[in-house]
Write a protein that binds this DNA or RNA. Structure first.
Lengths: 250, 250
DNA sequence: CGTACCACACTTGTATACAAGTAGACTGCG
DNA sequence: CGCAGTCTACTTGTATACAAGTGTGGTACG
């Protein structure tokens, strides 16, 4: 039959983790491309040729192709069969949806922070805030710290497991946010972060929630401003972009 | 705007649909396998051989493999390199996280339902409830209607765009829920749905929120009960299952 | 000069061959 | 009988060849 009985041999399962630790080329390509897309090194609408990427990264089409499929599932890449693959444009709907989802989860999470939070995590958050003040010149570093900070807040509520889902959903938000980071002095965000944490530890979720909401809305409003300035990044078009010029002869 | 596609399978998410619906083998395999996994036709821990699936579905390994990669990104499949691919087990953490995310989004969404909701959507919800009462014997049909109902509530708040994210995140929850659907008479759920909608339209979000929370918690508690009864489905996470017996000679 | 058409280069989709690794099954030895 | 070592069938990862389709640019024609 199609469902044979497992062997009678009792198996004391080996704690050596096979899957998460093995680094395949597919994974490496996925990480690299995702880094480029989220970091805007590859802007919205940029063409992604499987052959070009394979040649550049020194692998065959297979891992590149599979990485693109993964990115497409994340919503970061659009694949048009027989036409081409392109970095997704940031459309207003996706950004608003991501914003709503993030706001819902993070605000609800505040309500589940215990009265006496984990001192270790609180210390990490404090240290993070200190580094945020030092990183006001380095947007990349600040962006990383910002992610860690919000993830730490989820951890305080023991809801860190939802972080990956939030990250995946807010992929479009991240890109737009990165565009908007230059709008404000980064100090404003550090300030907002500090106030949220202080309010949370002092007055609980009720005190922190409006501050957090205002903080998240600041980010969202930034995106609207960016959209007015650079509308080409926010896809109004349904179809794929026009094909780039063919390769030159040498 | 009615959906012309047959409602046979509620497609979770399709970021690549702006152009004419190109139906690739990869997509067909993905839909079929997802249907089997979510419908528990392929139970948690079941082995998935790329070669076997390719032979059964009449395609080569490539589309099967790519579909498995997509399912792995959804968290429905685990791929252990050089060992095998298996249907993910339902672990307690994932279920709790999915529950929290779903609860956060759906409860927050209630607050954004306008004072005068879209009459068309309300009518659809009413019709859906009527069909729920008729489908008390058919768990499959009821499950489909249940999804449509919750999606409709999100649509009332103009947050339907978050539904795909919720669906993806609660994949584990769905499977566990399907196991637990036999716990209660389905009439209980229909009743809860009706009360939520009535309260929402009558007393607004404040009235509906506690009812919705109670409803979602009912589902969650069911899962805990199923876990006690069938712990083998809620796996010990780490290692891959033992390899099944090799193919028999004929 | 405008337009219709056609060929070509490039794209992704699919099939297939080979590579690397795992773990159960088997055999030989003590 | 027990155990260790090897064998072997199976797994997924990667590379590559071919198939099918699309849009652009050049070309011939009206």
């Amino acid at each position: 039959m199609t469902d044979p009985r497992p062997p009678a041999t009792a198996r004391p399962y080996d704690p050596t983790m096979p899957s998460p630790s093995t680094r395949t080329n597919r994974r490496a390509v996925y990480d690299e491309l995702r880094r480029r897309v989220v970091g805007l090194e590859l802007g919205p609408g940029a063409p992604l040729s499987e052959n070009e990427l394979a040649a550049e990264l020194g692998v065959s089409r297979t891992p590149v192709r599979e990485a693109l499929i993964m990115l497409a599932q994340d919503g970061l890449v659009q694949v048009f069969p027989k036409v081409g693959s392109f970095v997704s444009r940031v459309d207003e709907r996706s950004v608003a949806d991501a914003q709503f989802l993030r706001e819902s989860v993070e605000l609800a999470s505040l309500g589940d922070v215990p009265a006496v939070p984990d001192a270790t995590v609180v210390a990490e958050l404090r240290a993070n805030l200190a580094r945020q003040e030092l990183a006001e010149r380095d947007a990349e570093e600040f962006f990383r710290l910002d992610e860690q900070f919000h993830q730490g807040l989820l951890r305080l509520a023991h809801h860190e497991g939802t972080w990956p889902a939030v990250v995946a959903a807010k992929a479009h938000l991240d890109r737009a946010r990165r565009l908007g980071l230059q709008e404000h002095s980064l100090h404003l965000f550090t300030d907002q972060h500090t106030r949220v944490l202080d309010a949370l530890l002092d007055g609980g979720a009720e005190a922190a929630r409006p501050l957090m909401r205002a903080h998240l809305r600041t980010v969202f409003d930034d995106i609207a401003r960016v959209r007015e300035r650079s509308p080409e990044l926010f896809a109004p078009t349904a179809g794929p972009p026009t094909r780039r010029n063919i390769a030159v002869w040498e």
